[in-house]
Write a protein that binds this DNA or RNA. Structure first.
Lengths: 135, 135
DNA sequence: AGCAGGCATTGACACCTGTCAATATAGACA
DNA sequence: TGTCTATATTGACAGGTGTCAATGCCTGCT
């Protein structure tokens, strides 16, 4: 991981750690932009499947060649998706001999999960305070 | 909510409920497509902020006019984002008198959070099983 | 050095997305 | 009925995104 990528990574972690659950208080524009980068990366079916392949693999890491075999997509396309997942801090990579191994970055997933966590007190959908006039 | 929307909504809930955590086993293409729709909706800073405004509001619901006031975007743009969040099942809406009120759909957020939940046993990043040859 | 395999990068292209102005729709009230 | 307010829809446009073929780079092997 080069210096630039590490900078991005640290910045992302900071944004995520500073973000309260969505239910506590509204995100400001900066927080929202940081978190949205990660969700956008999760918003593609191929990337979700790649992530789940890595996450569910015993040992926690996968060779790129195995990922390529799991899809009917070109090798550059898979490489592109891996790059996106790495840039937002969801995956890390390491070269060993001729092969690249990708691993989950558990912190990022965990922070996202916490962000979406709801307090038990949140009411279910339905009209609440009658028809009070807003503003 | 019309019949078509209700169909989409039920279908989405089913997909989410049937999806194991990412770490259990790889998602198939259909599961991934369903979940990716929701994450894609979360992958925009404005929509994330809208969602956090609704989620953090005491009483659990917000009038559209309040959301409009919170952004320097045109009214149609906000309306578009609200539609997207509603279509993927993250928000519900209800008309009372002249005003539209939007509320969180807690089930969808909760399912997403569970999907991203990691088992405590997952190893941190780092080389694992030495340099075993893949395939 | 030369070659072969594994993966990344580049460039191109069709498609999708966020935004706005203009317009439409629906309810409240006179 | 007509008008006003609140929200949704339409149409258009710039910029972003997923995909592939072609190419480049790195590593190990001969």
């Amino acid at each position: 991981m080069n210096v630039y990528m590490r900078g991005l990574w640290m910045e992302l972690l900071e944004i995520l750690e500073c973000s309260p659950p969505l239910t506590r208080e509204p995100l400001d524009a900066e927080q929202a932009a940081g978190v949205a980068r990660v969700f956008k990366a999760l918003g593609d079916p191929v990337r979700l499947r790649i992530l789940s392949i890595v996450a569910s693999r015993a040992g926690g890491e996968v060779c790129v060649c195995d990922i390529n075999d799991a899809f009917e997509l070109s090798q550059p396309t898979i490489s592109h998706h891996l790059k996106v997942l790495k840039e937002v801090g969801l995956l890390t990579s390491e070269r060993r001999a001729s092969w690249m191994y990708y691993r989950l970055a558990p912190e990022t997933l965990g922070e996202l999960s916490a962000l979406l966590t709801l307090p038990a007190s949140l009411p279910a959908s339905g009209p609440a305070a009658a028809a009070a006039v807003p503003r």
